[in-house]
Amino acid sequence: MALKSTIYKAEIQIADMDRHYYADHALTIARHPSETDERMMVRLAAFALLASERLELAKGLSDTDEPDLWEKDLTGAIQTWVEVGQPDERRLAKASARAERVYVIAYGGRTSQIWWDGVRGKVERLRNVEVWSLAQGAGEALARLAERTMRLQFTVQDGSALCTTANSEPVELQWTVLKPGSAN
């Protein structure tokens, strides 16, 4: 018998001063049985950092043809494709051909750098792919905030973010842009 996804609910308030985006989102997150709290929460943080009115959670781990997050226009064309973790260069090339913009949000500190060193040569050629690496410990700190029902506030300013809840210490999110992207 296959294990089923665990459902999480998140209400997030986003104040992104860098992009002038201010909105509240109610999200239902299906956490795949093989997904950790850390990965799920990095996926949620990626949503907050790249949020728009049409950005949505996709099937990700449950469907190899879908990213973790995506944004489609009214015709169904994929505008933004977001991968969380350390995807291989073939997956990124495929995403690059299907979407206007591709973001990779890598986490895990040293392992992210090892992954980047291995794929960098091939990914650098993909003009519309942007790669971010979260600072060491950010994923683990976010994982400590995971609850079945969450209320989170993300404040983004000057290239970093602060994630706060009513009953825990704030988590500061910093990242390094390993590869800037440019739209086709």
Score class of each variant (00 low, 15 high):
A2Q: 05
K4P: 06
S5I: 01
Y8M: 00
K9R: 10
K9F: 11
K9Y: 07
I12L: 13
Q13G: 12
Q13L: 12
I14Y: 10
I14C: 06
I14E: 08
D18W: 10
R19Q: 10
R19N: 09
H20R: 15
D24F: 10
L27E: 03
L27A: 03
L27C: 03
I29S: 00
S34G: 06
S34V: 06
S34W: 05
D37F: 07
L44C: 08
A45G: 10
A46P: 10
A48C: 13
A51H: 01
A51C: 07
S52R: 03
E53C: 03
A58N: 04
A58W: 08
G60A: 12
G60C: 07
G60S: 06
D65F: 13
E66L: 01
D68G: 08
W70F: 06
K72M: 12
K72T: 13
D73R: 07
L74V: 04
T75P: 02
G76Y: 10
V82Y: 03
V82H: 08
D88T: 04
E89M: 05
L92R: 02
A93T: 12
A95H: 04
A99Y: 05
E100W: 07
R101Y: 12
V102L: 07
V102P: 10
Y103Q: 01
I105Q: 08
R110S: 14
R110D: 15
T111F: 09
S112L: 11
S112I: 11
W116Y: 11
V119H: 05
R120F: 13
R120W: 15
G121L: 11
G121S: 12
R125I: 14
R125V: 14
L126W: 06
R127Y: 10
V129C: 06
E130L: 03
A135V: 04
G137R: 12
G139C: 00
E140P: 02
A141G: 06
A143W: 00
L145Y: 02
L145V: 11
E147P: 00
M150N: 02
R151C: 08
R151Y: 14
L152A: 02
F154Y: 15
F154W: 15
T155C: 11
A161P: 09
L162A: 14
C163R: 02
T164D: 12
T165C: 03
E172A: 08
L173Y: 13
Q174V: 12
W175N: 14
W175F: 15
P180A: 10
G181N: 00
A183D: 12
A183S: 14
